[in-house]
């Protein structure tokens, strides 16, 4: 059994991964230009301001695009296939990569509404998404 690759946190991401442990999806917002930012950075990639603050995302969004992995993304994911990897567009406007779980893989489609769920993986809690009833 090969262990799955887990994040190696750093100065940008410590707060983000700690938030996931507390079931909070934290993203950043620039105090100067009001842009939302993901992944976390030391400055705003829109206006270069260093006044970036952590805010909690609603965790609600939709599938921008997705794929069904029929072959694993490395040996650690061999037992998972088929599984869905997707780009989620959060309602704040930022995109993040994740998995869609608790779903029939063939029912996933672009623009499908989803919401965040937190899944423990080793010493980490990863934000994943499931279909959202609307």
């Amino acid at each position: 059994m090969i262990e799955k690759p887990l994040p190696i946190p750093d100065g940008d991401s410590d707060v983000f991964w700690q938030g996931c442990k507390e079931h909070k999806l934290l993203i950043q917002k620039c105090e100067d230009c009001s842009s939302y930012i993901f992944y976390p950075r030391v400055l705003c990639p829109n206006c270069f301001s260093e006044k970036v603050e952590w805010v909690q995302s609603s965790g609600v969004g939709k599938v921008y695009s997705f794929t069904i992995a029929r072959r694993p993304g490395g040996p650690a994911f061999k037992d998972e296939v088929p599984y869905v990897v997707a780009l989620i567009e959060l309602e704040e406007g930022v995109r993040m990569l994740s998995n869609i779980i608790d779903v029939d893989v063939d029912k996933v489609d672009c623009d499908m509404p989803v919401e965040v769920v937190f899944q423990v993986e080793g010493d980490f809690t990863l934000p994943k998404f499931k279909p959202r009833a609307i």
Binding site: P5, D10, N99
Partner: peptide
């Protein structure tokens, strides 16, 4: 098809098992 080591910006990608690079191109196709 394994992703890159989960450091720096790859820490937000590799843990989700995106087959690399095919999965990214597949998302563009979808």
């Amino acid at each position: 098809l394994a992703g890159r080591p989960p450091v720096l910006t790859a820490q937000y990608e590799t843990p989700y098992g995106l087959p690399s690079p095919a999965g990214a191109y597949a998302m563009a196709a979808h």
